[in-house]
């Protein structure tokens, strides 16, 4: 997201010609314009929503409006223990995607290690990946009970895609580098630890980004099924008592949560990827 900026600023310090400096300045201007339009888009969206609701172009009971949503934030914080619900969902999402990432990396390593294992499991993994795990939510509930089914669904949704992504990355690792380590007498284990894993950090970061969204989907689906707390619970409760403001506020907080988690990973990516160069 913010990748071009550090490079242009750093490069500018060493920029030698007038033309090059002008080019870098233009890049900065373009980025500013993009930022400006993005902010404008958000404001326009909120404005249209608020006006449409106030002017009754849509039924405000069914759509809610930004001003009511903001008010509801404060009401929820005051009366309904909003922090508790946010914490429950956050904890479930983070735990699920940590487990999913760890499991996926280990399984991808095992698949890379044993070609036989990969050939044996490949069709099952592909089917498991294509199957909509949300359809299994009621089954997870019956098998794992109300507390653990949330984690189960979230992990199931993320893990299969991640395995395929990371294994794919492992397979694509530069064969020449691997040959190099082998010619120096390196074992398979050393190939894995020193070539394959480091080379695939970008793939793993990419998988992290996707997992954040998927884990949240799973957690909310699990909370819809059977929860006493969490943002999914607030959404269900709000819609049952016809409080659209509560539903919209919970959705807005969810959106905020996923953006923050994505930004944290992007920051991690900048830190890790920059180090390697």
């Amino acid at each position: 997201m913010s990748a071009p900026e550090p490079k242009t600023q750093a490069a500018e310090k060493g920029a030698s010609s007038e033309g090059y400096r002008a080019y870098l300045a233009k890049l900065r201007r373009d980025t500013r314009r993009v930022r400006f339009m993005q902010v404008l888009l958000i404001i326009a969206f909120l404005a249209v929503w608020e006006i449409a609701s106030k002017q009754l172009w849509v039924n405000p009971m069914l759509t809610s409006q930004p001003s009511a949503v903001v008010e509801m934030f404060f009401t929820l914080a005051r009366e309904n223990r909003l922090e508790h619900h946010v914490w429950v969902t956050l904890k479930e999402a983070v735990a699920s995607f940590v487990v999913a990432m760890a499991a996926a990396i280990l399984i991808a390593m095992a698949l890379w290690w044993s070609q036989f294992l990969y050939r044996m499991l490949d069709p099952f993994l592909v089917v498991a990946n294509s199957l909509p795990k949300l359809a299994l939510a009621p089954i997870f509930y019956i098998w794992l009970g109300d507390q653990w089914s949330v984690y189960g669904i979230a992990i199931a949704i993320s893990v299969f895609l991640t395995i395929l992504m990371i294994y794919g990355g492992f397979r694509e690792t530069d064969a020449d580098k691997i040959k190099l380590v082998r010619t120096f007498g390196g074992s398979r284990w050393q190939v894995l630890a020193k070539v394959v894993l480091p080379a695939n950090i970008p793939v793993m970061i990419g998988a992290l980004k996707i997992n954040v969204g998927l884990a949240l989907v799973g957690v909310i689906a699990g909370e819809f099924q059977a929860s006493k707390a969490g943002l999914g619970y607030l959404i269900i409760y709000g819609s049952q008592i016809l409080q659209m403001h509560m539903v919209m506020a919970s959705i807005a907080i969810l959106a905020l949560m996923s953006v923050v988690m994505y930004l944290l990973i992007a920051w991690l990516e900048n830190a890790v990827v920059r180090d390697r160069h």
């Binding site: 039924n59 009971m61 069914l62 008592i241 016809l242």
Partner: peptide
């Protein structure tokens, strides 16, 4: 109870 909710809502209808 739905009637009570609708009556309390900002719905114009």
């Amino acid at each position: 109870e739905s009637q009570v909710y609708i009556e309390n809502s900002p719905s114009p209808d």
